[in-house]
Design a protein around this nucleic acid. Sequence first.
DNA 1: CTGAAAGCGCTTACAG
DNA 2: CTGAAAGCGCTTACAG
Lengths: 331, 331
Amino acid sequence: MATLKDVANLACVDVSTVSRALNNTSYVHPDTKERILKAVKELSYHPNIIAKSLKQGKRHTIGVVIPRLSLTVFAVIAQTIEEEARKNGYATLICNTEDDPKIEKECLNRLRSGFVDGIIIAGTGKNNRLIRDIHSTGIAITQIVRRQDPGLNSVTVNYEKCGYEATKYLYNLGCREIGLINGPMNIAPYKERYNGYSKAINELGINETTASSKIPVHSLEYGYECAIELLDKSENLDGIMAAVDAQAIGAMRALKDNNISVPDDIHLLSLTGDRIGKMLETSMTSFEMPVSDIGINAAKTIIEEIENTTTEKSKPKNIVFLSKLVKRESS
Amino acid sequence: MATLKDVANLACVDVSTVSRALNNTSYVHPDTKERILKAVKELSYHPNIIAKSLKQGKRHTIGVVIPRLSLTVFAVIAQTIEEEARKNGYATLICNTEDDPKIEKECLNRLRSGFVDGIIIAGTGKNNRLIRDIHSTGIAITQIVRRQDPGLNSVTVNYEKCGYEATKYLYNLGCREIGLINGPMNIAPYKERYNGYSKAINELGINETTASSKIPVHSLEYGYECAIELLDKSENLDGIMAAVDAQAIGAMRALKDNNISVPDDIHLLSLTGDRIGKMLETSMTSFEMPVSDIGINAAKTIIEEIENTTTEKSKPKNIVFLSKLVKRESS
DNA sequence: CTGAAAGCGCTTACAG
DNA sequence: CTGAAAGCGCTTACAG
């Protein structure tokens, strides 16, 4: 790899001049510049961003810490973040935690060590202190999807409203035994969806039935198992709400395996819809999550915090989107 | 952010001693070490990896360049690479190209600038020269899924065999008009699958019918549109092979919208199965791709190349996995 | 318009 | 066992 020095030697100027010419940071005589550019070509010189970063104290890199990519809403979000970041000259470093607090801790500790200027995270909620600590060190933080710490920027969805409205929607379709497939309650969105569900259940005076499992919450199998659990728990189950699409797909299959027809016997819906719903054989009624908006806003928010050099820390920015109910065949 | 120097000052030793103590790179007197460790704690010092990288000439970072995450096999592969890399002390930088050669070029140029020690890529095939150039610069390259350049390491699947066997399999089920939903032929796997399909078609003496579209090849809509196209082209269509799962799911929906029953009227299968198949309402017969193996092997291969300091370049390593046919309900 | 020098935060021979 | 010095590849005041 050719370095600045090589270019300087070949062009018979000082490295500082090369630097200035290449960064357009001050006027350089056209002739000199031309010589430099020629040398750059000849050596196929590519500046070393690492060295630049070290000097400038900025890495132009954003860390993204999420539980999982496959079959989750995070795949599109991560992709959108990456695209938006790239447009602004930032690279994106992705870490999958599988919602294991230990892995999360490991990832965060790596990222803090000069890798990134900011971290976008959908966290487990178990490393809030560490995250605060990292933030106090000058690294920007934005929470996505899961707002585990109200003191930090976040881009989320109004999950409670989803849970509430979904329950009422199913009730209005005639459902009287509505089960909720949910995830760990220490993770904000699951807690909030449950709150909305529970509130509606109470208002409607019907029974609450929930299911959860130990296996990865974003898996098809999770939905399958929980659907079976709900069927066990509730004799006359006639409605199922799944927290996320993967669960809803698994639940659909579980119902089919038990010769239960959707929506005739049981109405089914997903609280986190993300494009696949409309293409399923029995298309899925879902609260469609504005995934692109979340990704773009997360990227913008974090870049803003990174580039905002005024030392005053403004109060945290919490952007909340609304999911929209899209009625399809499953309920 | 505290630096080495701060720690050295507080512990009353030279920075070099701190460095040695922290890296266990030579014996340091226990008392000294203790003082240093105490200082590290007190200042909550975290070494700056960037500076370390600059000095050591290694970044311990791998770039992953893929077309898309959402609803593709690349989501699991990227995740597996990240996990395997993390275990070996490497971070993972992800770039989505959407199969746009321009974006790909941009990503590659960024990555080459000191960001990474190696690049794992599922490329468009349009930047082979650039990739060669980057490789000659000392950056390791491993191709995954798509082997666009035989001169570089790769981890792939035997797509031709899949295409061939799938066709024969459908024929044996009684299909006589088998359509192929495929992608751009300049991307190796699509070409190879087509070759296998075509070979079988010729051997069997039946007609060839293929469909493709301009929209993103990894979308549900692609499958939907192409299925319609096949129905148009072939009166008695009785078999459909889709290159990837997302397409197969879209195709299934298209058939349903046309009141065509799977598998009674048309047999359907996916040539790139990845976990979702078994959970679909009509579970999908697929050639299951060994995604974890691909991810793990890609990570291992690239780390090996990175850490192999012997200057001799060994000849390229091409790892080829076989997809296994898993029979389910769709055919 | 351009050079010489200092420095970003580390590591690593070289002495002692 | 530890210090002093040089250097990784760049940028940026400071002079001139």
